[in-house]
Amino acid sequence: MCSLALRCCRPRSWLFSLGLAVLVLLLPGCASRVAEPVAQAPVSPAVWRQVDGELLNASRSATQQAEVYAQGSMEHWRTRIYQQTDEHFIPWFSGYWTQEWLALKVGWYSLNDRGDDAQASRRLAGYLQEQYQQRVLAPVALEIDADGITGEAMEFYVQLLRQQVQLSTARHQLPVPQLDQHLARIIAIDLGPQAGQRASLQQLLQVEPVARLPAYAPLLQQIHAGPATDQGEAAPGVSQVAQVTSEKLQAQFASRGVVGAVAAAVGRVAGALISVGVAGVRALVQNNEREDLQAQTRRDLGVAFDQAWLKQLHDPEHGVMAGVYYLARQIEAQLQASQPLVEQGPGWSP
């Protein structure tokens, strides 16, 4: 009975094994067909125009928001400059021994001016510039750097554009490869023929932070090479303070004959020279004159600094917003070209 049952089961077992083998052979073919990528239909020109229009509006909005950011940062920087000037530079400048030392310097400069009356003021301005950098600009730069605001504003602008691209991608269901190709045609930085001087909008949005982009450094170099940040120029107001101080000290020298005393000391040891200078100018700054000197210095520095501050804030080529303005001009000019004429407004200008 058992042998009969086994004979009956063998054909079924053989058929089952055969079917299983056939199924195993068919599975790789089915898997390969499932893995084949589905070709995506190209995005229509009408959709790309909509995307470009959205980016165009986003760039204009991002520029305005970057201006608000830059102005707030610059106002904070100016406040700290004023505080540092009041706390560290003006007390030092108006101090008794500082004025004694400045008087000696002006006397020495006057002996070597070779007929150039302005030379003493220029040399004094150079000395005061070093002191202002050391006592005011350098400490404030550790907290907030005016040059750094340029890069921060650019990064903020690019972040806002990046958010808009993400919204447009989701709204229009844009395939990533086609979107990358579209953005790669828009040149965001064009400073020269070399690869390190050029960057597409796709590269600008892809690299984080934007400072890692090879073309970023040349752009900043071009901005910082302008007159608004001339490294050879004295800090705002220092030249005016130096001129007023030099004229005042020279007049006092003339009335007291200190120049003649310093001249007589030429060739002697430094200690004797300093003694002559200090003895001749000991009465230059009295306690009842110090408040007036501080007030005058504060006015001279404040007026000139405010003018330089406004220039640095609003100069479209070399100010703190120059990087954003450059990117906006480049990008918007190309985006606007793809829009219907009825939708094109007046050209962008900072």
Rank of each mutant, 00 (worst) to 15 (best):
Q178E: 15
A21T: 12
Q344N: 00
S255F: 01
S338C: 07
V43R: 00
N57L: 13
A235D: 10
Q330H: 08
V136P: 12
V276M: 03
R299Q: 11
G53W: 02
A242N: 05
A39P: 07
R123A: 06
F89K: 10
V38C: 01
L284V: 14
A58N: 14
Y326I: 12
L335I: 06
A125H: 05
N57I: 09
R122I: 13
Q334L: 09
F253S: 11
A333D: 10
N288R: 14
Q344W: 01
A62R: 02
T79A: 11
G148K: 00
L4M: 11
L111T: 07
A146P: 03
I186D: 01
A217I: 09
Q166F: 09
P37W: 01
A195P: 00
E67G: 06
E130I: 02
N112T: 11
Y109P: 07
V262L: 15
Q252P: 00
W97E: 08
S94P: 04
G323V: 00
R329W: 08
L327D: 00
A31N: 04
Q250N: 10
R12K: 14
E317I: 10
Q119S: 07
R78F: 02
V259Y: 12
G271R: 09
S59L: 03
V241K: 08
S59I: 06
T150A: 08
P346I: 13
E289W: 10
F156Y: 14
S32A: 09
I149E: 00
A70E: 06
E143K: 10
R10N: 08
L313T: 05
S275V: 08
A195K: 09
E143C: 07
Q64D: 10
V303C: 06
S168K: 10
G192F: 01
E100F: 05
R198N: 08
W77Q: 11
L20C: 12
L23E: 08
D315N: 11
S200H: 06
W14E: 10
G280W: 05
E54W: 13
T79E: 14
S73E: 15
G277F: 01
A39D: 14
H318T: 15
A265Y: 06
E233I: 13
Q131A: 14
C30D: 08
C8Y: 13
L293Y: 15
V34K: 04
V262T: 01
I331C: 02
G271A: 11
E247T: 14
Q312G: 15
E75M: 09
Y82P: 00
A261G: 04
D230R: 12
L167I: 13
A138Q: 13
E87C: 06
S3R: 13
H172E: 03
Q119C: 04
A170K: 15
V51S: 00
R298D: 15
Q181L: 09
V106T: 11
I186N: 01
A242C: 04
E343P: 04
V43H: 03
Q202D: 11
L335K: 09
R78S: 03
F253P: 01
Q50G: 14
R60D: 04
R268I: 08
D190E: 11
F89G: 05
Q203V: 05
R290F: 11
V241G: 04
M321T: 02
V276G: 06
S17G: 09
R78N: 05
V285H: 10
V43Y: 05
L313I: 02
T85F: 03
P340E: 06
